[in-house]
């Protein structure tokens, strides 16, 4: 962790971030402001566009807000929805908390793994889907449940989840810049 922070700190002097990230961060900072209390909305804005926080975008945020990159990293990594590893276009988060677990979460997860040929924590090679587990989504009365990006799917069964994913696959093949 310390090593990684140092790496970020040092690299901020030498590393030229990608332009798209830099523009995005600048726009977000213009929109929300450049104070510390604007940090979370800016981090969320980057994640919404790029699905994760790259090292360069965190450095860029630090520069815009005039704060240490290690602090940006420290804050960002606290929150489970602020990914700092490259993610697919659609992030699937399957609820693993008690009621969903009791009501067949494992079968749902197996169906997804089987269909997408990835395990929890992995992304499909074409970068379309990432599969994660998450804590209580607040739909225990309709368990099991999952999120795909910001959309909730409830009362899941293996069949239902296969239908849902097929729709996403079709949507993704049809193309469309952001697909959301």
């Amino acid at each position: 962790m310390l090593d990684y922070c140092l790496l970020i700190l040092f690299s901020s002097h030498y590393f030229k971030p990608m332009d798209t990230s830099a523009t995005l961060v600048k726009n977000l900072a213009d929109q929300y402001g450049r104070s510390r209390h604007n940090l979370l909305p800016i981090l969320q804005g980057v994640v919404e566009q790029e699905k994760y926080l790259s090292e360069s975008s965190m450095i860029e945020i630090a520069r815009e807000l005039d704060m240490p990159a290690s602090e940006v990293y420290g804050t960002a990594t606290f929150y489970s929805f602020l990914e700092h590893k490259k993610m697919g276009r659609y992030i699937i988060r399957v609820c693993k908390t008690i009621t969903c677990s009791m009501k067949g979460k494992n079968q749902v997860l197996l169906a997804i793994e089987d269909m997408l040929k990835i395990d929890v924590g992995e992304t499909t090679p074409d970068g379309t889907f990432s599969l994660l587990q998450t804590n209580c989504l607040g739909f225990c009365h309709k368990a099991p449940t999952m999120l795909i990006n910001n959309d909730v799917y409830t009362d899941l069964t293996p069949e239902k989840v296969r239908d849902i994913l097929s729709e996403y696959l079709t949507k993704s093949k049809e193309g469309g810049q952001n697909g959301n």
């Binding site: 510390r36 981090l43 969320q44 606290f78 929805f81 804590n135 209580c136």
Partner: peptide, 24 residues
């Protein structure tokens, strides 16, 4: 103000920290 997937931020003072742009 949107949270980002941290249960502890429901604790009131952690929630303030989070709103102030810090770890919850």
């Amino acid at each position: 103000f949107m949270g980002s997937g941290a249960y502890i931020c429901g604790e009131e003072t952690a929630l303030f920290e989070s709103m102030e742009g810090k770890r919850g």
